[in-house]
Design a protein around this nucleic acid. Structure first.
Lengths: 164, 164
DNA sequence: GTCAGTGCAAACTTTTTGCAACTAC
DNA sequence: GTAGTTGCAAAAAGTTTGCACTGAC
């Protein structure tokens, strides 16, 4: 996995936000927590616990246990610095501060997830007035079939029909 | 869980769709599969595998194994008769034929999921032209905090600030 | 009669939990 | 010094798989 090194300001900023969060909630400011946050903000795109674990082990000063990763991710989600997706069986996470909101297209055939941006759609969704609810963020998953799988499938079905 | 008995036409229709699907794909038309489909269309709202299993055991002519439930749900999803949600750790399913598309508000604090409908939003999302992708359906999850949790939290934070 | 589908249990994967050791405060 | 946090390993929860048996075709 390729890591970012060009976003020092963002990493400083999220560190600061996290510190405020930890202070306010009376949680401890452990080196593990900051190392995890920093690693997450070096990753572009989605990651799961296992790959984060391996990455930490390989590159970070701190080797942290899986349990600590799970614990810290809960805090980071609560602090609105990380969001969680559940596409397949494994939970996927991604950094959320200073990120463009994006939407997801998921092919139900091959499982491929593609991201796309759409400002209009974003405004449509974020602009909704919701009853008794304060919106913080959202996830939109559009399911269907990518062109590649459409071709494969229609070929297969044509054969089945012929066999009848 | 309360079961529906007033939707016989819908159940007939989905049975027919499923039959066509099974024929086209050269799958067998087993009684288990129809019993599962019928049970699912008697359930209003979300359900998980475990509750479906218990429900089948209690009320249906057929006792089916969990493995068969998993297998059949894959077929039903492929046939577009059921959709799957992954809110928490357990997968949630729901019938999708003849259903109003609805959106979900999820409280990140207490985990409560509330459904709501919004025709305009539905049109906005379904109307999107997507590159190399044929849209079949979508899921929109809006995260945030319900009024109840907002109150609880702000009370807690006020106390913490005072203690400083 | 054949082989896809089923039930069962074991295996596997991901996440949570209990507890002793550690360390931020 | 104390209690929140960590690491480890065991447990739990959810899903998948292997295999012998069954029944749809």
């Amino acid at each position: 996995m390729e890591l970012r090194t060009d976003n020092i300001e963002v990493r400083e900023k999220v560190k600061q936000i996290f510190t405020e969060y930890l202070t306010l909630r009376k949680h401890r400011k452990t080196p593990e927590r900051y190392a995890i946050l920093n690693m997450i903000y070096s990753i572009d795109g989605h990651f799961d616990i296992e790959s984060l674990y391996v990455l930490m082990e390989e590159t970070a000063r701190f080797r942290v246990s899986r349990a600590t990763l799970y614990n810290t991710l809960i805090l980071l989600m609560d602090a609105r610095l990380v969001i969680k997706h559940q596409f397949g069986t494994t939970s996927q996470y991604e950094k959320s501060y200073d990120q463009e909101t994006h939407h997801h297209m998921i092919c139900t055939q091959c499982g491929k997830v593609t991201e796309f941006q759409d400002e209009q759609l974003k405004r449509d969704i974020e602009g909704k007035k919701l009853p008794r609810f304060r919106q913080t963020h959202y996830s939109l998953y559009i399911y269907g079939m990518c062109t590649r799988c459409q071709r494969t499938l229609s070929r297969k079905l044509t054969i089945n029909k012929r066999k009848k």
